[in-house]
């Protein structure tokens, strides 16, 4: 499987990464090489094998419904790039 420039454009947009048009070919080439490595997986038949999402066979633990956190807004916003009146600022969101 090798990637086209358009594939790279599509996934770069999904991942919100800028890939300039003169980088597209080299990125597509890089990714295609990695995909070839991944295709080694096709050598094995996995029909009926249960996918394994976690190494351990544990169930989700449930925490009690208690408010345990305090207001740390000032602390957390001291590392934010842009805030005003307690809000995080971003370029205008159009709906």
């Amino acid at each position: 499987m090798s990637l086209e420039r358009s594939d790279v454009e599509k996934i770069a947009h999904l991942a919100r990464l800028a890939v300039s048009s003169d980088e597209l070919d080299s990125v597509a080439g890089d990714l295609s090489t990695i995909l070839q490595l991944m295709e080694q997986m096709n050598a094995v038949n996995t029909d009926g094998v249960i996918p394994m999402a976690h190494p351990l066979h544990m169930a989700q633990r449930l925490r009690p419904d208690e408010v345990s956190e305090i207001d740390e807004r000032d602390h957390f916003q001291s590392i934010a790039p842009a805030t005003e009146n307690g809000l995080y600022l971003v370029p205008r969101v159009i709906e």
Binding site: E84, Y88, L89, V90, R92, V93
Partner: peptide, 12 residues
């Protein structure tokens, strides 16, 4: 929140 943040959007 699309209030008056110099054309920016505020996130709560």
């Amino acid at each position: 929140l699309h209030g008056d943040f110099h054309g920016l959007t505020g996130i709560d």
